[in-house]
Simulated assay, not measured.
Amino acid sequence: MSGVLAVAAALPCGLLVGVLLGALGGGGSILAVPALVYLLGQSPHEATAGALIVVAVGAVTGLACHGRAGRVRWAAGAVFGALGTAGSYLGTRWSATLDPTVLMTAFAGLMLTVAGALVLRGRRAPTERPQAKGARRHPARIAATASAVGLLTGFFGVGGGFVVVPALTLVLGLEMPVAIGTSLLVILVNSATALATRAGTGGLDWPLLAGFAACAAAGSYLGNRLATRLPAAALANAFAALVTVVAVTMAVTAIPRL
């Protein structure tokens, strides 16, 4: 695919990723890797690195929107993100050693897990209650969860928001809207760590990624506005269906090559 055509194809992909990232506080970024590989011709390792740039840019835009609305707990998000940096570093190093086919097969499995988690989150959302403010928080549990999120970010090049949002509600006791906003700060910290770890490991198609990231930023803003107009469960279910289709397609393509 020529450079101009690749950038043109990246625009709708980036917009979709950004909309989902802004509306759901994560999850949308998981579409960046398959889009870069199957639609834009990147190798799996290039795609997992490039996706981190797209995720980071989209997270900044969404974070600004949620921050202005008072839906970000800056201190809690910064600490949670910092606790995940070691996992992000290890995940990045581990990912670089894997065969590309194995990496994409594992990614398909991750996508199916995400789809299931989103459906469950949508069903529980009306009845979920955050922990009381005085609830006891276990530092070891918080550190373990943060490290797992960082590992996912570094290994797969995804933000991990599908894990961060429920973790922030259950472990830190944040209400769902605040957890969604705060998750973007965690995603940004983990993405920056993974990008720093990957620095100098290979060339990236910067024009393509710039177009993709710019659309992700615009989409994140639109997604933030959309989230106030549509039921979260409807968004989550529609996204879960899309992720399932993409994951099955990836698995059918990758598994025979193992």
Rank of each mutant, 00 (worst) to 15 (best):
V57K: 00
C13E: 02
V102Q: 10
L52W: 01
G81N: 11
S43Y: 01
G14F: 09
A96L: 15
L40T: 04
R68A: 13
A86R: 01
A23Y: 07
T61Q: 07
G77H: 03
A82K: 02
W94C: 06
Y89M: 10
R68T: 11
V37D: 05
R68H: 13
G70K: 05
G116F: 11
G77Y: 03
H66W: 02
L20K: 06
D99N: 15
H66E: 12
P44H: 07
M104I: 13
L21H: 04
C13L: 14
S88K: 06
G81V: 13
A106D: 02
S29L: 11
V55T: 08
G26E: 12
H66C: 02
V72A: 08
A23I: 09
G84L: 07
P12L: 11
L40K: 04
A75F: 10
V79F: 11
P34K: 01
A47N: 00
V114T: 05
F107R: 04
T85A: 14
V54G: 09
H66T: 04
L83Y: 00
V114P: 09
L98H: 03
G26L: 15
T48I: 15
G116M: 04
F107G: 07
S88H: 04
T113V: 07
L103H: 02
C13I: 12
A78G: 03
A115Y: 12
V37S: 08
L40N: 01
G91L: 06
V55G: 06
L90G: 04
A106P: 00
G77I: 09
R68F: 15
L24C: 07
V55F: 03
G87M: 05
V55Q: 03
T85L: 15
G28A: 05
A86Q: 01
V37N: 06
V72Y: 10
E46R: 14
V102K: 05
P34C: 04
A75G: 14
P12N: 07
V114N: 03
T61P: 00
L24I: 12
Y38H: 04
V60N: 01
L16M: 10
Y89L: 14
G28I: 08
I53V: 15
G70C: 05
L15Y: 04
V37F: 04
P12H: 12
G84A: 08
S43Q: 11
G41Y: 03
A56T: 13
V55N: 09
A86G: 09
A59L: 01
A51V: 08
A32E: 04
P100M: 14
T105P: 04
A64C: 10
L90S: 07
S29V: 12
Q42H: 09
T113E: 00
F80W: 00
A49R: 15
G67L: 11
L16W: 10
G81M: 14
G77C: 06
F107H: 03
L21M: 14
L36T: 02
H66D: 10
T113Y: 09
C13M: 11
L52N: 01
L36S: 03
A86D: 03
A106E: 07
G109Q: 02
G116P: 05
G91T: 03
M111A: 07
V60H: 02
L83C: 08
G70W: 06
A86C: 13
V79E: 06
L98N: 06
G26I: 14
G67P: 02
G26Q: 11
G81E: 12
V33A: 10
V54E: 10
G18A: 13
G67Q: 08
